[in-house]
Structure formats: structure tokens, C-alpha cells
Design a binder for these strands. Structure first.
Lengths: 361, 361
DNA sequence: CACACGATTGCAACCGGTTGCCAAAAATTG
DNA sequence: CAATTTTTGGCAACCGGTTGCAATCGTGTG
């Protein structure tokens, strides 16, 4: 080879320029703006680049063009398998578009989250927020000055994709009612969670439509370990079925109930939310609200990239709602007969007193 | 405020310089090299920076300093929960050190992997390779020119952290023997996998020490769906126990066996590998080789950062071996009596012919 | 044959920092 | 008090690209 880059260091645009016998600017144009240079010149440049194994520095490019070709994904807690599917979905879509994914754990903290967004402003072209802890106000302010898409958080003026669990909740309740349940508990997730609030709300509304008796139990961190306390509380409340904020808690409950010798679904039915990895093969397999989590990630990226690279014409959608559906597996079954609703639980003679307002068919 | 940055755009080092009444270079030094500027000057600069909410551009900094403060994690398939724990472990350690994680899916392809490494050379300070598909040669060549740590792949001159499954395999086999098993199958993972080869090797060695009869079944992709074929093959081979390449396959087998009405562990014992999320609550809970996966991720990052920021003195370790141990749960049990070893499987009268070389006590 | 215009390509400034080198200022020394 | 150090801070080059503007060249046109 006649001209080669300084030993060791990887080739720069100048090396390519020297080798092709043109100016650096021409190389830049030949590679990123073909048509702006002569056909034959471009060929020479391309060959030189290939020979030198030239890879443009995304850093340097970002400096002038302002585009980093990277998108950050903020999750509150990587530990939660729910986010795995989102990580996966976004990663796939990003890769397809040639973008890089920056993964950031915000530790369930609004402060860390806000700080991360500020930092990312320079090192990413946009951000996906999952289960944001920011206030509505902070959120819409951030969205006004930086490309941003929220997942599972609906706020005015913030593009978002939300998973329509509320409608799924209806299906879940119908299912439970059809199995004869009359008193169900909602196992509440974290206090600040938007999704949690929505689910509880939907559950209340549907329950009152159906004349169901509902109680809300706890606010629990969304972890498997919360399941134990939740399960205990549930049997103590003498409900025959529970709808849990998410599958993690639900699976934790399953474990605890098994430990206590309480049969699922014979003595207690459990419904989860999300249908995460594991819901299908836990014991018993979990009836749950299947959410298109991975798709949510993909859609979020599509929305984000849509506004990063506007293709004229149609403005990108502001809100995408993804449907859920109930997947019935083995953790739900007919309500136990009144005989001994909870052989194992602390006796509570009043428990059957809160009779359903609607009589059985 | 007297001097403020051009409306809208976020503050640059020059804005800070202007506001503090010093040169940009002074600001740079004040912030990154205190001690090089006067105490009072530094204070002024810091205050100006704070007032302007100045955040240095990592891009620009990377351009001159060469350090991007980012580390890439290459995984062959984000779909596999095994990597979730690695993602988590690396993410945690990186965050603690102020680094950013770049997540890349190499699609189980050596080519994509090599390409990614080349790209990353400029945009990351180092790379963690999990289950690399590269040849030993490519790998050590890459490691020679770029900070790199491999997980579960031992190659000369390539810093790596390997999980010592082979020794765990011994424990698993002992366990099976103590339960009376005499003929076990190894459910093989992907053909090219280094870990798979090691596991199979270790299994053979230990089996011959114990006088066990072993067969290798298939090469299966490391997915749950592989479990069905694996399970069928296993019952067909008239073994009473299986050690699977990983938990994913093992769980898939569990499902298939349940489907066919074959009792685990009464008719067939199953041992997994890795102890991924889900192994604990599948049905029955999986006996498996618990691997410190998350820790592996953390250790890998520690090694990598160790060589990125040499602290004089001790050269960083080249190889870190993490122990595993057998976690016995409910998927293993006493070998079925000879009566009807596989009521459900195609009859194979010769199956008991391959008697163990060592007689029972 | 002079002039104009489009296609190409080079020059140079700039993106936002970092850093070697030098000079002014302050402190130390004889 | 002059000479010598030591501090401190500015200048300018540079990292690896991008891009506005101008120069060059070829050719169509009047």
C-alpha cells in the first residue's frame, strides 16, 4: 500500500483523503452526501476507505451534526423482568434503524431520572422513559425541549405509548365473576405509580358495575418478595380472588400460598398483570393480563425516530394505546364453596357477611 | 444575570468562561484539573458553571481525551434471560463508576460481533464479550488492540471471567448417583459454544469416574422451545436423568414432560444450568447449577475498568473463575425402580443392557 | 469568441472541549 | 532591591468530522 495511516491508530478521514488524493471535505461528502461529488471521485474515495478500513468517528460526527445516533432507555429498576422485554423491544428496533441503545437505571428516583435526562441531552438524540417518576409538569417541560417518549405514562403534550391494562382489568373481572367470585382484592403496586393508579381505578369502576366487592391491599414494591405479605393479607381479608399489580407480585403470592398449603386456584384465585417471562411456567401457570411489552418498546422507538427524522407529511402520532387481553391459565378457578373459604386463615366470622349485592344466577 | 448563553442552546465551556471572566482553557482546568488553577478562580468558575447549569459534552471531551466513559456489552441474544443478569450486573458496576453502558445484540453471529467491536473501538473505552462467537485467534487479536474482557470464554491472553460450571457438574452427577441414577443424558447446547463443550467434557470425565452411563443428546439452540424435542429424545434414550445445557432448555423439558404425563422427578430427573430467573418457581422447581451470573458481570466490569484506569502497582488479574454450586430443588429425585422405567416411551428392551460398570453398594 | 452557468472540489471555519507552551504575576531568595 | 522560581492563566493547535463559500473547469449560448 502506498499511503497508510499512522501506524497503529485507526484511519481518519484525512488518511482516506490522502490515499484517494482528495481533500477531507470531499471524502466527507462522498460518503455521506453522494451525488454531491463526481461519480469517479466517489469510487476512488470509497475504495480508499475500504482499503483503510475506515470507520467514521461517531463522536466527531456528533460534534458538528449534533446527531449522536443513540437513544437512551431509562428504566427505574433493571432488576424487574418487565423491563427486559422493553429493553429487548427497543434494542431490536434501534438496531434495525442503526441506532445505539444507552441503558440507564434510574433507581426508582425522580432525581436520578431528571439528572440523567439532562446529561443525555448531549449524548443521545432522544430518550425513552419507562414508568417515569417525574411529575406531570416536569415531564411535559422536558418533552418540550428534548425528543422524548414515555411508556406507560400519559401526560398532555408528551408523546407516549400506554398499555391499555384498564380494559384488560374488565376482562379479568368478568372472568372472575363468571367463576363465581364475589369478593376480590387488588394488590396494589408502588404508591407513586401511574399505572397502578389507573389499574386500581379501572378495577373499582368495573367492580361496581358488576356489583363486586373489592378491597385494596397495601402498596407493595413491585418485587416477588412482596408476594408473601400480599398473600397473607389477602387470605386475612377473606377474599377468594386477587388481581395483582404485576406478575412479579403475583408469582410471589403463588409461592407463599403454596408454602402455607393454600391451594391455588381451589381456595384462592390469582390474576397477574403483564405476562412476563415466567408467568407461563410458574406453578400453577399464571392467569394474567397479557401486555405487548416488547411491542410497546418497539412502538416507542418508532415514535421517537419518527420525530427525529421527520419524513414530511404526516405528523407522528402523539399517543399509541396498545391492547391487552386476559390469558387464562391455571391460577384462576371457581370460587370455593362457602363451606370453609379459608381453612388456614385466621377465623373471621364476619367475612361472609359482606355479601355480594348481586345474587348468583 | 449579566452574561448568559445564547438563548435556547445549552451552555458550553465558553459561556462559562465568559461568565466567570476567564479563558475557556481555564474553565477546563478548573473543572477537570483542580489544583492547576488558583483557589479563588476555581470558585468563580464553579459558581458560573452552576449558575449556567453547565454540563460538559461527553462527545467533545471524547474527541480530544480519547475517553468516552462508556463500555459496551455484547450479548449474542437479548432474548435469553441468562444475559439479563449480566446486563444487570454490568450496568450496576458501570453506573457506580460513572460509566455508561452500550448494549449491543450480536445476533449469535461472529460477523456481526466482529463488526460491532470495530465500530465500538471509537465509541467505547472497552467491551465486555459474552459467549463470544469469535475464534480464539480473532479474539486474542482483538484483545491485543482494544480493552476487552470475555465472559465464559477462556482464551490465552484474553482477560476473562469464567463461571466454573465443570466443577458444578461433578456435584450434579454425585447428586444423581446418590439418588440411584445410572444412565443420564446431557442435553447439549449450541454446537459452537465454548461453555457447552466444557460442560460436556466435564460431564464425561466425571461420569466415567463414577462409572455412570452417559449419552449426549442433540445440539439444541438455547431456548425454551428446544425443550420439547430434548425431552422426547431423552425418554426415547431411556435415561432416568438429564443434565441440560441451560435452564431455558431444562424448563422447556419440564413443560414437555408434563404435557406427556411423565412425572418429574418420579419418572425423570432434570438438572439445569445457571439458575436463571424462573428456575426457582417453575414446576417443579428446578434443580440447577447456580451460577453467580450477575457477579460475573460485575467482576468483568471491575477487571475492565481496572485496566482502563491502572492504579499503578498490581497488574489486574487476567482470569477470574467464579464458583458454582448445585442447588437442589424438586426436579430431581430417586431413580425410578427398574419395573417400568418409561411406561410412556417406545419400548427398548436393550436399554437396561448397558449396565453400569460399578455395582450398587 | 466572450460570457454565463452548473458541476466539482478545495479552503477554512467551526463543533466543544483539552493541553502544550509561553508570558505575566506573585512569591521566594540572596 | 534585583534575580530567580513558582503560580497562574491565556493563546493556539488539535481531536475528526461537517459545511458555507469560493475557486476551477467544462461547456452551452448569443
Amino acid at each position: 500500500m502506498s499511503i497508510s495511516p499512522a501506524a497503529g491508530r485507526s484511519a481518519t478521514i484525512h488518511d482516506v483523503a490522502a490515499r484517494a488524493g482528495v481533500a477531507a471535505s470531499t471524502v466527507s461528502r462522498a460518503l455521506s452526501n453522494p451525488g454531491r461529488v463526481n461519480f469517479r471521485t466517489r469510487e476512488r474515495v470509497e475504495q480508499a476507505a475500504a482499503e483503510l478500513n475506515y470507520i467514521p468517528s461517531s463522536q466527531a460526527r456528533a460534534l458538528t451534526s449534533g446527531r449522536t445516533v443513540a437513544v437512551a432507555l431509562l428504566v427505574p429498576d433493571i432488576t424487574n423482568p418487565f423491563y427486559f422485554d422493553i429493553i429487548r423491544g427497543t434494542q431490536m428496533q434501534l438496531k434495525a434503524a442503526g441506532y445505539t441503545q444507552l441503558l440507564v437505571d434510574t433507581e426508582e428516583s425522580a432525581e436520578v431520572e431528571a439528572e440523567a435526562i439532562e446529561k443525555l441531552r448531549k449524548s443521545a438524540d432522544g430518550v425513552i422513559l419507562t414508568a417515569s417518576r417525574l411529575t406531570d409538569d416536569e415531564l411535559s417541560r422536558a418533552a418540550a425541549t428534548f425528543p422524548l417518549v414515555a411508556i406507560n405514562r400519559g401526560v398532555r403534550d408528551v408523546p407516549s405509548v400506554v398499555i391499555d391494562t384498564p380494559s384488560g382489568i374488565g376482562q379479568a373481572l368478568d372472568h372472575l365473576v363468571s367463576l363465581g367470585h364475589r369478593r376480590v382484592a387488588y394488590i396494589s403496586g408502588p404508591a407513586g405509580s401511574w399505572s397502578n393508579a389507573r389499574r386500581w381505578q379501572a378495577l373499582q369502576r368495573h367492580a361496581s358495575d358488576l356489583g363486586l366487592d373489592v378491597v385494596k391491599i397495601g402498596n407493595f414494591p413491585p418485587k416477588m418478595t412482596s408476594g408473601a405479605a400480599a398473600a397473607d393479607a389477602a387470605v386475612n381479608q377473606a377474599v377468594t380472588a386477587c388481581v395483582a399489580f404485576n406478575d412479579l407480585i403475583a408469582i410471589g403470592m403463588l409461592q407463599r400460598l403454596a408454602e402455607r398449603g393454600i391451594q391455588v386456584p381451589d381456595q384462592m384465585s390469582i390474576v397477574g398483570c403483564d405476562d412476563i417471562f415466567g408467568a407461563e411456567f410458574c406453578n400453577p401457570p399464571l392467569t394474567t393480563l397479557t401486555a405487548p411489552i416488547e411491542q410497546a418498546g418497539r412502538v416507542a422507538i418508532t415514535m421517537l425516530l419518527g420525530r427525529l427524522n421527520p419524513t414530511g407529511g404526516t405528523a407522528p402520532r402523539q399517543l399509541s394505546t396498545l391492547p391487552t387481553h386476559l390469558t387464562v391459565r391455571a391460577s384462576t378457578g371457581p370460587a370455593p364453596s362457602r363451606a370453609d373459604p379459608n381453612a388456614d386463615a385466621p377465623t373471621d366470622p364476619a367475612s361472609t357477611g359482606t355479601a355480594p349485592t348481586r345474587s348468583a344466577p
